[in-house]
């Protein structure tokens, strides 16, 4: 079977963000039948069946307060995970970022860092967001490093809000503001915007 050529919606260097496809649902199911993955994502102890992943996929088209992309590695053209914004609030200009590198062989290679950065730039440029937050469990050091490299800052901790094996861990809160980001990659996507433009404020 020939690899599917997927639309390059948000182009990055080593990865790009693409629209998700119905055919990706079995892949999500494989990723979410993994207790390590669901523990990092906060759905501790849960595994999701194909019907639940299908339901999530169907919700993507209906819910305007969230947007999700697939992450494709340029070199292999493989889908390695998803990244998204949820609780998009256009009054307050805020959203919460979430990412899953579902393909475990693709973890620890910097793809997540780039995907997080692209998603934050997309949110601030195309959705006019001012501030994007995220959280991770304090023992998720790899996630922590990726978020720091992507430009997020630690702004607080929900102490002891996460339990595993009878022990309590903090959830660490991070955020990034529009002023922290260089949005020139996003504005370059709109060719006629130009470098000078005619912005009125």
């Amino acid at each position: 079977m020939l690899p599917v050529i997927r639309p390059e919606v948000v182009p990055g260097e080593r990865i790009f963000l693409t629209t998700l496809l119905q055919d990706d649902v079995p892949t999500f199911t494989e990723w979410f039948a993994d207790l390590e993955t669901t523990a990092y994502l906060g759905a501790v102890g849960a595994v999701f069946r194909v019907e639940q992943e299908q339901e999530w996929y169907n919700s993507l088209a209906k819910q305007s307060d969230q947007i999700n992309f697939g992450i494709i590695v340029r070199e292999t053209q493989h889908l390695i995970g998803t990244v998204g914004l949820k609780n998009i609030d256009l009054l307050h200009g805020t959203a919460e970022l979430g990412i899953n590198i579902g393909d475990k062989t693709a973890r620890g290679r910097g793809y997540g860092t780039e995907a997080v950065r692209l998603m934050a730039e997309y949110g601030c440029f195309f959705k006019n967001l001012s501030s994007i937050c995220l959280w991770f469990v304090a023992f998720n050091e790899r996630g922590h490093r990726a978020y720091l490299k992507a430009g997020f800052r630690e702004v607080g901790r929900w102490r002891g809000s996460y339990q595993l094996g009878g022990r309590r861990y903090d959830k660490v809160i991070m955020d990034i503001t529009r002023d922290d980001l260089d949005l020139s990659r996003m504005s370059a996507l709109i060719h006629q915007l130009g470098e000078h433009g005619h912005a009125t404020g």
């Binding site: 307050h92 200009g93 501030s131 955020d175």
Partner: peptide
């Protein structure tokens, strides 16, 4: 107080 999300509301 455990944290402050910067500029997170209008």
């Amino acid at each position: 107080e455990e944290g402050r999300m910067r500029e997170a509301a209008w």
